[in-house]
């Protein structure tokens, strides 16, 4: 019974996919005009397909959010200010140079420890909830809520559960690593961050955090290795990494 039923719905799917050959397509259309049940079920299946597609967007939206942050937000921060503000800009640059010069003088006088460098550079990875459907019942939204509330024990539990079912969620994997770190589970944090070293988009963030974790554990050599893997086209992250490398070397 189930097999026959599956066959019936598969044929409807094939029609909706456009994968029936011309003759079968024509025959199906003929049946649609004659059989009310088939016409009704085809419409129902069309709506099921839409619903599944609607409910499947979370992963893609998470990836788009990461791409947006990396390609748009970092550029907008670097945009030139309007002409009216150029005087301020000059003053700011002058002040910045002065502060920078004083900073270099200060650095020449004393070398900060690895832990101090960690403390100066470490920030919890900022993650905005990207789910716009499902509200509180959405496991990803619940996990992100826990993360933002700094309830890292709950966040770890939720992220872990989601990633077991859907391992290809790199942003959540990164948030899991940070949650482990914040929760004092440093070995798990290091393991979790390593899984992102080959990710095409998040690998630079992963190297950055791996470097900071190494600094916190007083291992500047490992930190240098990770920082050197952050390429020059990584925008602000590269700037931060280059600055930290200068200090370490």
């Amino acid at each position: 019974m189930s097999e026959k039923e599956d066959q019936y719905w598969n044929e409807i799917d094939d029609y909706l996919d456009g994968s029936l050959d011309q003759q079968a397509h024509k025959a199906f259309r003929q049946r649609l005009s004659e059989e009310n049940k088939l016409a009704k079920d085809t419409l129902f299946q069309q709506e099921m397909r839409q619903g599944i597609a609607f409910g499947s967007q979370q992963n893609l939206r998470s990836r788009l959010q990461v791409i947006h942050e990396e390609t748009i937000e970092s550029n907008q921060e670097a945009k030139i200010v309007p002409i009216g503000r150029q005087l301020w800009l000059r003053w700011s640059v002058a002040a910045g140079l002065l502060v920078g010069a004083l900073g270099i003088l200060f650095l020449l006088q004393q070398n900060p420890s690895s832990q101090e460098l960690f403390a100066d550079n470490y920030e919890v990875y900022s993650l905005d909830p990207t789910s716009r459907s499902g509200g509180e019942e959405n496991p990803a939204a619940m996990a992100l809520e826990a993360y933002q509330q700094q309830d890292y024990t709950a966040a770890i539990k939720e992220f872990d559960h989601i990633l077991q079912n859907e391992p290809e969620q790199p942003t959540l994997q990164l948030a899991l690593a940070i949650s482990y770190w914040e929760n004092g589970q440093t070995e798990q944090a290091k393991s979790a961050i390593k899984t992102l070293f080959n990710h095409p988009i998040l690998k630079d963030q992963a190297f950055w955090y791996a470097a900071l974790f190494a600094l916190a554990e007083d291992n500047p050599e490992a930190a240098v290795e990770y920082l050197e893997k952050i390429p020059t086209d990584s925008g602000q992250l590269h700037t931060k990494a280059a600055k930290l490398l200068d200090t370490l070397q």
Binding site: E47, M48, F54, G134, E137
Partner: peptide, 9 residues
């Protein structure tokens, strides 16, 4: 769409 998405979850 919400109902089907919930079913999927």
């Amino acid at each position: 769409n919400q109902l089907v998405a919930e079913g999927l979850r």
